[in-house]
């Protein structure tokens, strides 16, 4: 599938109707989502025939993008029932089978190394400090192959250091810097649109054998 086609399909998906401020529910736009998954597949082969989990999936955009690029199994996790309902309808619309779990990412127990790739647009941690790093820490435990995540560019050094030192990353690379248009969703947004610089990261966890050494 071509990038343009992917972006256009994702553009047709429903987004949050009433986003929840405490969960930092910002939609992942089709522009960013398509580039994220297209790169994951075409540069790194982390999507096709893989088990892909979308952490904090919201309306399901990233997971569904993985599905469109041939992921064998996609699992979306979110704490918010309303988001999951929208995601469910979006999956239906694209005729993709996506499994969903309503859960708090921070208190979910995983077994084994079944999930190969985690994709996520975590809460940036502006409302609850460290929320993005909690997501990253868990994603690194769950994924056996790669983690793709978005973090504010201003936190680049911190993210890199934590990933390599604390979260068992074999590598942590910024693939590209993107502009994240946060539309005026919440009352505290004074400007009509807030443009935030975000990094698209690819993290590679240590292999299981290496972890046990």
């Amino acid at each position: 599938m071509k990038l343009k086609q992917l972006e256009s399909l994702l553009g047709s998906l429903q987004q949050f109707s009433t986003p929840k401020i405490e969960l930092e529910q910002y939609p992942t736009g089709p522009h960013i989502a398509s580039r994220m998954l297209y790169t994951a597949e075409n540069s790194f082969e982390d999507v096709n025939s893989k088990v892909v989990a979308d952490f904090g999936c919201g309306c399901g955009t990233l997971g569904l993008a993985a599905g469109l690029l041939g992921a064998e199994s996609i699992i979306g996790l979110d704490i918010d029932a309303e988001s999951l309902e929208i995601a469910y309808e979006n999956a239906d619309e694209l005729e993709l089978d996506m499994d969903f779990i309503q859960c708090d990412i921070n208190s979910l127990n995983w077994r084994g190394q079944i999930v190969e790739t985690v994709v996520m647009n975590p809460p940036f941690g502006t409302r609850r400090k460290g929320a993005d790093m909690d997501f990253l820490s868990l994603a690194m435990k769950v994924a056996s192959q790669a983690v793709y995540s978005l973090h504010k560019t201003t936190t680049r050094e911190h993210v890199k250091r934590a990933a390599l030192r604390d979260y068992n990353a074999r590598s942590a690379e910024v693939i590209c810097e993107l502009r994240y248009d946060v539309p005026q969703l919440y009352i505290f947004h004074k400007k009509k649109e807030v443009d935030i610089a975000v990094d698209l990261w690819r993290f590679v966890p240590q292999r299981t054998q290496e972890r046990s050494l």
Binding site: V51, S73, I75, D97, D99, F100, I101, C103, S107, L108, N109, W110, R111, G112, I114, V115
Partner: peptide, 21 residues
């Protein structure tokens, strides 16, 4: 929910030692 997903889920209640399957 498919059984592939079931196979990686474990009970997450505090204090539970054997939450799988």
């Amino acid at each position: 929910m498919r059984l592939l997903t079931h196979n990686m889920l474990s009970s997450n209640i505090k204090g539970v030692a054997n939450g799988f399957p």
